[in-house]
């Protein structure tokens, strides 16, 4: 009985804490958006963050995309050739990358590569009182530190997801055409016939924009909100990766159920 009560209490406390953090993060998002003027006017602040979030994530995204494509090519061929439609391997690779794997896997990689770095940087600036020092110099850290990192992530993520999908399709092509011997023309024409610009390509891009926004918000929020100690920063980094990954998968489900309802 007591165990049940305390378990219920734990659930209640977690719920309240979760709702409180969600509300706080929403208010934080509004504050960041309101202080975004400077990062758009002084565009160099944002360009610098695109470098750290985007350019430095390039290698992991390109290599992972290539390997995911290679695996999809092999697996897809293995299944499709049983039905005598091995040319459709391009369709399968392209659709699974554009609709799901591109935005989702690129988002997960982005969260662990760039999101954690942003949280660590902001958290460290908080722990060493750099944010407070900036505030005392009459420079708002939301405008100078947080907003550029947020926008850098929002801009980088869709581009990274597109590169991921492109590399994946290239990987699928490498397996299908030169290795297995599927006809090059059939590979592309089947793909083009099956892939629709609006339902597949555009929806994938929308997904990647949403994921990029979510990961960037979580990353800057966790960094800005962390306990200003070494332990607090490391906990915040873990939370960024865990929360971002869950957010990506949950948002993916919600977006997919809206996008592919089968008109």
């Amino acid at each position: 009985m007591n165990g049940l009560l305390s378990a219920l209490r734990t659930v209640g406390a977690m719920t309240i804490d979760g709702i409180w953090r969600l509300g706080f993060a929403t208010r934080f998002l509004v504050a960041v958006l309101m202080h975004s003027g400077q990062s758009l006017r002084r565009v160099h602040l944002t360009i610098r963050e695109i470098y750290f979030s985007g350019v430095l994530s390039l290698l992991i995204i390109v290599v992972s995309g290539l390997f995911v494509g290679l695996v999809l090519g092999l697996q897809g061929y293995d299944i499709l050739q049983r039905y005598g439609s091995s040319e459709a391997v391009g369709v399968m690779v392209a659709l699974s990358l554009l609709r799901e794997l591109g935005p989702v896997v690129a988002g997960l990689l982005f969260a662990s590569r760039a999101g954690s770095a942003v949280t660590a940087e902001i958290g460290l600036m908080k722990a060493t009182e750099q944010l407070k020092a900036m505030d005392m110099m009459a420079v708002n850290p939301l405008a100078r530190v947080v907003a550029p990192r947020f926008w850098g992530g929002v801009i980088s993520m869709p581009l990274l997801a597109a590169m991921f999908s492109t590399m994946g399709i290239f990987g699928g092509w490498l397996i299908a055409v030169p290795v297995i011997g599927v006809d090059d023309g059939a590979f592309w024409s089947q793909m083009q016939a099956a892939v629709d610009f609006r339902t597949d390509v555009l929806n994938g891009v929308i997904k990647s924009v949403v994921f990029g926004t979510a990961v960037s918000l979580i990353a800057v929020f966790e960094g800005y909100d962390c306990q200003p100690t070494a332990e607090g920063v490391s906990r915040a980094i873990t939370r960024t990766v865990v929360t971002s990954s869950l957010a990506i998968l949950a948002l993916d489900f919600v977006l997919t159920s809206f996008m592919f309802r089968g008109q």
């Binding site: 940087e121 600036m125 009182e129 750099q130 020092a133 505030d135 110099m137 009459a138």
Partner: peptide, 20 residues
Amino acid sequence: LYAMRRRMGMLFQFGALFTD
């Protein structure tokens, strides 16, 4: 407040220099 802080300087306990 920001207008006032422009005429104020503060030295933090461990300097709080911008590490980047």
